[in-house]
């Protein structure tokens, strides 16, 4: 059998799936950030009139996924599978969204790497001949994630300078076997890497080795250099993790140059009191579905690697003193 796999961890698509459309919905803080204009919809507040933040997050994901279908004028019936994930226990935001959209549903959990994971798995399903159209959706919400992973929002405590701010946002991408648009040409599936970081207020440091390892393996598998890409964006290491990932790559003999950035660094600016930057799977999903895809379509970027990075711990494992395992998944998108 002619394997489409290249090297150890990379798949190269014979018929690269097309990104037909994308849609992003964010909360007010993200809307006020430097990428505010790139998002399709900005909510006035985080709850949007719903009875709980959890319901609001699920509604946000629904809006994003419906928005992606509307943008491409594709009906629900034309879609084969929906792939979705979020940060909450048992991925309830995705489950409740899937209940509304009622498509065959594959739930994903990759923590903050879920958008990259969804694009990789969706592309494999399409190129493998199992589906023609796949809808990928990913969400996170500051207020649902904070109380699950950290402290109540009204508790008067100081956040560590290395802590990241969970993004309120949902991004959705519609993949198709045919059509016009940017194409996903390859994907590198990451290994779980744990360098014994235990500090839940420093998730960027916990995820950086996994991101560096995936990038290293991607270049090894595909025999290319960082300079072959117009942008390499991790999502979401934040400021601390981005610095560490660059350092690890440098020590591995890879010069990341100036085209290496991070979705968590891009989404907020310094005046927004978020410390090390954004996090949460909504972060890389809205930055990709908004800003990055727009810049690819405009011709400003020709070849982009999105490296989703996830911290695969739980509040239980953290309390029990376990270290935080990290993962990074890379997908390459070309105009």
């Amino acid at each position: 059998m002619n394997l489409k796999r290249l090297g150890n961890q990379t798949v190269v698509f014979a018929n690269p799936p097309v990104i037909l459309s994308s849609y992003s919905v964010v909360g007010p803080k993200e809307g006020q950030g430097p990428l505010g204009k790139s998002f399709d919809k900005v909510w006035k507040d985080g709850i949007n009139g719903e009875k709980s933040w959890e319901v609001a997050e699920s509604k946000m994901l629904q809006e994003a996924m419906q928005g992606a279908m509307d943008q491409a004028s594709i009906q629900k019936e034309q879609i084969d599978f929906m792939l979705a994930g979020d940060l909450l226990n048992q991925i309830i935001s995705s489950n409740f969204t899937a209940r509304q959209i009622a498509l065959p549903f594959i739930g994903l959990y990759g923590a903050c790497s879920t958008m990259a994971l969804g694009l990789a798995v969706g592309s494999m399903l399409i190129d493998g001949g199992f589906a023609k159209k796949i809808l990928v959706g990913v969400s996170s919400h500051h207020d649902t994630a904070e109380r699950q992973f950290r402290l109540p929002t009204e508790q008067g405590s100081q956040r560590a300078l290395s802590a990241q701010w969970t993004v309120t946002g949902a991004g959705s991408v519609l993949l198709s076997s045919s059509g016009v648009g940017p194409r996903i040409t390859s994907a590198t599936i990451g290994k779980v890497i744990d360098f014994a970081v235990k500090d839940v207020n420093n998730m960027g440091a916990a995820m950086a080795p996994a991101v560096a390892d995936t990038i290293l393996n991607h270049f090894q598998d595909i025999q290319l250099q960082p300079t072959d890409y117009s942008l390499i964006a991790s999502g979401d290491l934040g400021g601390v993790g981005l610095g560490l990932a660059c350092e690890l790559l440098k020590q591995s003999g890879i010069d990341t140059g100036t085209n290496f950035t991070d979705c968590g660094v891009l989404i907020y600016d310094h005046t927004q009191d978020v410390h090390a930057g954004g996090s949460g799977c909504g972060c890389s999903s809205v930055v990709f579905a908004g800003d990055i895809l727009q810049r690819i379509k405009a011709g400003e970027l020709t070849k982009v690697m999105l490296v989703g990075s996830g911290a695969l711990h739980s509040s239980t494992s953290a309390l029990q003193g376990e270290s935080i395992p990290g993962i990074g998944h890379a997908v390459v998108i070309e105009k």
Partner: peptide, 11 residues
């Protein structure tokens, strides 16, 4: 106590 100990030392 908070600044000079491990980050797991919460309020």
């Amino acid at each position: 106590l908070m600044d000079l100990t491990k980050p797991s030392f919460t309020p």
